[in-house]
């Protein structure tokens, strides 16, 4: 798993970081995005749906886990 620290960064930057870095993990592996912009909780799952990746949920406040599936 890799962790992307996007705390303090405004949307869409956390989603851009996620899109850029998902290639750096293998299929089946997880990217954790740390983001406190209020749009992240909505837009990270929406990105997963649009880009056919798996949203695993928010294990804690301001953290969002995404599994690369393609």
């Amino acid at each position: 798993m890799i962790t992307l620290d996007c705390l303090g960064r405004k949307c869409p930057l956390p989603v851009i970081e996620l899109a850029k870095n998902i290639r750096n993990v293998g299929v089946g592996e997880v990217v954790r995005v740390l983001a406190d912009d209020p749009a992240a909780a909505n837009d990270i799952p929406a990105w997963c749906r649009m880009k056919d990746q798996e949203y695993l949920g928010s294990p804690e406040k301001d953290a969002f886990d995404v599994r690369r599936v393609s």
Partner: peptide, 16 residues
């Protein structure tokens, strides 16, 4: 500085 509550309620992308 919050995304639209309508887009959030629909669960669709709010940025851009």
């Amino acid at each position: 500085l919050r995304p639209s509550h309508v887009l959030e309620a629909m669960g669709v992308l709010s940025h851009g």
